[in-house]
């Protein structure tokens, strides 16, 4: 499903050139649950951003569903992103001014879906993560775990086939972290491909494959026996 070949990403300032990703090769098949681990600054998030088409590689090739997406214009990337990718962030990234329902609906607004259909799908997503009773609350009125559940609902409501999670449990306590991991696992079981960045070995265990990174390179790949 995702194929990275010799992919590099460098950041340039006036004097320094930093290689965040250095000639990476990576294949992710449909239905996989991949955890990316590594110390801070090793390029995990950069990799995730490139996978999610939020950032473009400096060189190399990225095939998304067999289509070369490296170097596509912004509008095209946005289009692929909204049809295929859902995001979950460590800091939830909910819009403070919108209610739970509206935050989730936001993901459908740019899909050209009718209002009635949107309502139905939002309701289903809320049921799925168990947040329906808080539909009209603002993010500031929710606990961290509840906020992340809203974020998960928002990530899945558009029915993406790829879910990217950037330390989804980083801001949560153990119990809420487990809850979120359970949700991701369930989504994966239902067919979604999941790529997750995490610092927690315990949560990495939920994945079918763990990719360890250091200094912009993939150090070890470890597959868990199914």
């Amino acid at each position: 499903m995702l194929t990275l070949r010799n992919l590099s990403r460098t950041y340039r300032t006036d004097t320094v050139e930093t290689a965040a990703l250095d000639a990476i090769d990576l294949d992710i098949a449909a239905g996989e649950f991949v955890a990316i681990m590594g110390p801070s600054g090793c390029g995990k998030s950069t990799l995730l951003n490139i996978l999610g088409l939020l950032d473009s590689p400096s060189s190399g090739s990225y095939l998304f569903h067999d289509q070369e997406v490296a170097g596509l214009p912004e509008a095209k990337l946005a289009d692929v992103r909204k049809r295929h990718v859902g995001f979950i962030f460590q800091s939830f990234n909910l819009v403070d001014e919108l209610t739970v329902r509206e935050n989730i609906e936001l993901a459908l607004l740019y899909h050209g879906i009718s209002a009635a259909d949107r309502r139905k799908r939002v309701a289903a997503a809320m049921d799925r993560v168990g947040i329906a009773h808080r539909a009209d609350h603002r993010p500031s009125q929710l606990s961290g775990g509840q906020q992340q559940r809203v974020a998960v609902a928002r990530a899945v409501v558009g029915k993406p086939d790829l879910i990217l999670a950037d330390e989804p449990t980083g801001n949560l306590d153990t119990q809420h972290g487990e809850e979120v991991m359970g949700m991701l696992q369930a989504l994966n079981r239902d067919g979604a491909t999941i790529v997750m960045v995490t610092h927690s070995p315990a949560h990495a265990d939920y994945a079918s494959r763990v990719v360890n990174m250091l200094d912009g390179r993939i150090l070890v790949e470890r597959r868990r026996a199914a």
Partner: peptide, 12 residues
């Protein structure tokens, strides 16, 4: 932040 979220969610 909000604009970022919207963009991530597919806004052009």
């Amino acid at each position: 932040k909000e604009i970022g979220i919207r963009k991530v969610l597919g806004a052009r």
